[in-house]
């Protein structure tokens, strides 16, 4: 088992109480972010997906996190700086290309 899988499983377990209810939303969001960033391996993703299908609190937490992350990304992307017109040319000029 990879270091990542071990970390994911252990963190996942710590998010839930003995009755399998979500008790640590802050830690859970770290797992959600890893999933949303497409960085989880197949095994970890399967564990996660099974849980959000069966636990409403986990599912809501996932959806909220997903929407917030997408909204922040979209607004940051649309707010990019204006590139100076002459930048590419002056770079090429500086190395005689």
């Amino acid at each position: 088992m990879s270091d990542f899988s071990v970390w994911f499983e252990e963190t996942f377990k710590e998010c839930y109480c003995e009755h399998r209810g979500l008790v640590d939303e802050k830690r859970f969001t770290e797992l959600v972010q890893v999933i949303l960033d497409n960085e989880a391996d197949d095994k970890s993703r399967a564990i996660f997906e099974h849980k959000i299908k069966t636990c409403i609190k986990s599912s809501n937490c996932f959806e909220d996190e997903k929407c917030i992350q997408e909204a922040i990304k979209d607004k940051l992307v649309e707010h990019r700086s204006v590139i100076p017109n002459d930048l590419a040319q002056s770079i090429k000029k500086s190395i005689n290309l």
């Binding site: 990019r80 700086s81 590139i83 100076p84 930048l87 770079i91 500086s94 190395i95």
Partner: peptide, 29 residues
């Protein structure tokens, strides 16, 4: 060269200054 726009944006978000960003990108290239 296709990454010059991304490089400038990254530089600008680090320095918050247009001239500094330009210098940083040119120096990088």
């Amino acid at each position: 060269m296709p990454h010059v726009d991304s490089m400038y944006n990254f530089a600008y978000r680090l320095t918050f200054d247009e001239d500094d960003s330009k210098d940083l990108v040119q120096d990088t290239y």
